[in-house]
Design a protein around this nucleic acid. Structure first.
Lengths: 203, 203
DNA sequence: CCAAAAGTGTTGCCGGTACACCCATGG
DNA sequence: CCATGGGTGTACCGGCAACACTTTTGG
């Protein structure tokens, strides 16, 4: 099972599938599936992610292994979580059916106690945001610091101070200036930044 | 599979089993086994832990789910790690066979790439030590701060400053004074401390 | 009297947080 | 001319690391 997060319109969203078959038919659930013969766990998670979003070069990490989700379910479920920039998903999934994303804040009950998984994934994401550069996967290659700050705020669920935020991400070497600027709408051009690394770097 | 850590003579040790059957007969490996019908993952890990050490009320947490350990092995392995105070293991395992513990520092190759698991467990342990009170499981109920410091030093692999260590664990409320003292050997009596909580408290 | 361990304060540095104003542009 | 968003500096506070000497006791 894979928890696929995106940030959309300043809110954190998760990709859900409406179950077509029993049990829990008609309810929303996280996308999942069975391991194919000869496939690794990470490989299966990546495949599932590519199936749903069309992207593959993103942050994807094992989350936890659950068992006894729901009532009768005795199976164990290895979960992963991924971070995807919405803009990139369109590239391959544009013409096909777009799986619906849902605001995390507005969710009700999901099938198979998937809320537990989602809550855990959210917590891990919040934590990782503080010491790593995982957000690279939620932004285009070049971006303005304000845009980046929006992503952080969406995930943490609180507003941040602009100057402190800039000092931190630049000062600690998470991102670097590209030298290029962008002119967007009714304001002066903004410096574009990029991540110094795409690895889950630890500070 | 369970990684069972203890601290012995100022060194970090891990409990290993010598494989009696092929494959990898005669090599050292982490204790493990199959899930019994109707058993939860956490339950199975706890059972395995009790089998080997006789203790049950200790820190035990899921570590990671591996797959493709070793060459031909296609199975996936859910690993846990546990922390055990040596003194407590004797209570139940005294008369029976004592599974051998090995200094982590002195290990060579293990069966099934178990080194990877062990290395990962060590890293997690080091990290958790910094923000949680997991060490409660490696010490008797009451202990001197010097003894506690030895445990921390054994795990972190470096010596710590006595005054800074005391300030931190007392000041941040990880441990509290009991009011009782202990007179041990050729020195003045030492205050005994205890953990304020046995939960994996996060600061 | 000596070895062994317990106990105790101060200082400097750094990272985190709080806080307010000016500037360039497009409409 | 005004609305929008970009950009910038300072002051306080708390945690963290470095650092050395005195006391008690058992042998």
């Amino acid at each position: 099972m894979v928890v696929i997060f995106t940030v959309e319109q300043d809110g954190l969203s998760v990709l859900l599938i409406e179950r077509a078959a029993p049990p829990c038919r008609g309810q929303w659930a996280l996308p999942g599936g069975l391991l194919r013969p000869g496939e690794s766990l990470q490989g299966a998670a990546g495949r599932k992610l590519a199936d749903e979003t069309g992207v593959s070069d993103v942050f994807l990490e094992q989350l936890y292994t659950f068992d006894r989700l729901g009532e009768g379910q005795a199976d164990t479920v290895v979960t992963y979580f991924a971070l995807v920039d919405i803009a990139r998903t369109r590239l391959r999934a544009e013409l096909e059916w777009q799986p619906p994303r849902h605001r995390v804040r507005e969710l009700e009950r999901l099938a198979f106690e998937n809320e537990r998984i989602l809550a855990y994934a959210q917590e891990r994401l919040r934590n990782k945001l503080e010491y790593t550069n995982v957000a690279y996967s939620l932004l285009p290659r070049r971006f303005t610091l304000t845009r980046m700050q929006r992503v952080y705020e969406a995930i943490l669920g609180e507003t941040l101070d602009k100057r402190n935020f800039r000092r931190r991400v630049v000062g600690l070497g998470i991102v670097r200036e590209t030298g290029q600027t962008e002119k967007t709408g009714a304001h002066r051009p903004a410096m574009l930044y990029e991540f110094t690394s795409r690895e889950p770097m630890i500070l």
